[in-house]
Amino acid sequence: MAINEHKLQRQFSARKIILPVLLGLSVVGYMLYRNYKPEQLETLVQASPLWLGVTFLVLFIRDFGYIYRIRYITERALTWKQSFNVIMLWEFASCALPSVVGGSTVAAFILYKENIPLGKSIAQVMVTALLDNLYFVLAVPLVLLFAYDTAMPELGALSPAIRSSLEFAFLVSYILVTLYAGLMSYALFINPKAVKNLLIKISMISFMKKWRSNLFNHANELLIASQHMRDKDFSYWAKASISTAFVWTARYAIIGCMIAAFTQLSLDDHLLVFSRNLIYKVVLMMSVTPGAAGLAEISFPAFFGMFLGGFTTVIVLLYRLLTYYLYLIIGAFVFPRWAARVFSKSKKHDQTGEPVTEEVAAGDHI
């Protein structure tokens, strides 16, 4: 996808931010209208301060882990403030773009505008994507060992058909993520040219014509990333992997901590919530709405309603406030200041008449 100042600002326009917010809040509003009871307010007031504190702590740990990881993966080329801006903009992009697109499409451009060479920025984003996918590939078998029979939600009278469809979709998603992670690992560390040639051959198939440009670009990006990452030592990959596991475990644990603030959960219940969260996130990946707005709110009761009953709708709202709307608000403050800084800097460079290198020129066409 070609990215430049104009297209980035268009992606983060007020209209594109307001629409998913209205969609998500409309769904929650309707659910509250259908399910609200006066005693729910009493339950909200009686929330456990300890578990609410743990929820915010886990949220902070997750974000700090992301900030630490991007600073480490970029080999401290970013300051702590720059790392914070990059992660908040990355989260902002994930919230403002459809889940099937995701924030990674603009992440390399964001790193490039923070004065990281284009080749390195592509490599570093691909490394984070690889580590994220590998966590999912390894975590799914582990959690399903503990909660296989109950990991899929019951969906009332429609449960047999929908449950089968959900299981099939989850299985297909898991296989695709596994294949993609395997292909990326092979390309980055073993034989990038072979994978590049494979992707180019696939792009030549007639029905793949629509994605030919994307496949060709991805093939080149894998080759670039491999050149930058194959010489990293064991310590680099160990720390990057540990921080990834740390971040994603916290990300999936947030719902369990929040639910525990309003009802008693055993250790087995926490494991069940964790396992269902993995499947819940796969469902949200299929959404075509920005940040899975609407689908996230509708699907939440099916996965976690058994723990909360009629209070589920309130938790949906709190959960989305902390993990979705919060980052839209932060991003709305960070993005204008960040854009003013990095793009004004680029204009100053242009006005000096300094020659633009080939790598920089490519920066507007990621």
Rank of each mutant, 00 (worst) to 15 (best):
L118S: 04
F60A: 11
M152I: 13
I70P: 03
G102L: 13
F189P: 01
V100T: 12
Q124A: 03
P192Y: 00
F170W: 14
D132A: 14
G102M: 06
A129V: 12
K120Y: 02
F136I: 13
V137M: 07
M184W: 06
K113D: 01
L144C: 09
V106F: 03
R76K: 10
L176R: 01
E167M: 10
S165L: 15
L50C: 10
S185Q: 02
V54F: 10
A169L: 14
A194H: 07
R62G: 14
E167W: 09
T178V: 15
K120D: 02
Y186S: 14
L158I: 15
Y112D: 01
Y135T: 03
S48D: 08
L57Y: 05
F92N: 09
P160I: 11
T150L: 05
F60M: 14
F109C: 01
A108T: 05
Y72S: 08
S165H: 08
L59M: 13
S48C: 03
S48K: 06
V177Q: 13
I87R: 07
R76Q: 07
S48I: 00
G156W: 00
Q46W: 07
N85D: 12
I67D: 03
E114I: 05
M184A: 07
T74D: 00
I110M: 01
M126E: 07
W80L: 08
